[in-house]
């Protein structure tokens, strides 16, 4: 059965008719064509599908789309504003924090929530906040350094 879903995605009001068994991840990618959010393990283990729901990082592969009614969703597409990259995106690019890039959207969005809540997190806090995001390329060091650099960058 299709259900009508109304929510805010990247600050724009969205109304979509979607299958009621779909996850938020599936609706974002398949019905709203927002393919920046990646489809990884599908089981809540990898963090590739992380998005913000009302500012909190969650795994969109384990959120029923119908439960996103009325909520405020932020995906990686919502990070850049007015054609300018978010400091996190710029620092990730400058410092080589992405290799294959598949985990990057989930990490960016999780790091954004961290910096929004704690503008100057310690390295240990960054590691803990990102502990649910797997990266099989970088070894994490550049990722942590990029988040530290973004925390220091003017916003």
């Amino acid at each position: 059965m299709k259900v009508r879903l109304k929510c805010t995605v990247n600050q724009e009001p969205v109304e979509v008719l979607a299958d009621d068994y779909k996850t938020l991840l599936e609706v974002l990618r398949e019905d709203l064509q927002l393919t920046g959010t990646k489809h990884g393990c599908e089981l809540g283990e990898c963090g590739a599908c992380a998005v913000l729901v009302d500012g909190t990082p969650v795994l969109s592969c384990l959120v029923l789309a119908v439960e996103s009614e009325g909520r405020r969703i932020t995906t990686v597409e919502g990070l850049a504003a007015d054609g300018r990259l978010h400091p996190l995106q710029k620092c990730f690019a400058d410092l080589g924090a992405a290799q294959c890039g598949y985990c990057t959207p989930g990490i960016l969005i999780t790091a954004k929530a961290l910096l929004d809540a704690e503008p100057n997190p310690s390295r240990a806090r960054i590691c803990e906040a990102l502990s649910g995001n797997l990266c099989r390329c970088t070894g994490y060091l550049q990722i942590v350094e990029a988040v530290e650099a973004a925390a220091k960058a003017p916003r």
């Binding site: 809540g44 963090g47 990082p57 969650v58 795994l59 384990l62 959120v63």
Partner: peptide, 9 residues
């Protein structure tokens, strides 16, 4: 338990 994301949920 699990990760920050999963604990948020």
């Amino acid at each position: 338990v699990a990760t920050p994301h999963l604990r948020n949920m």
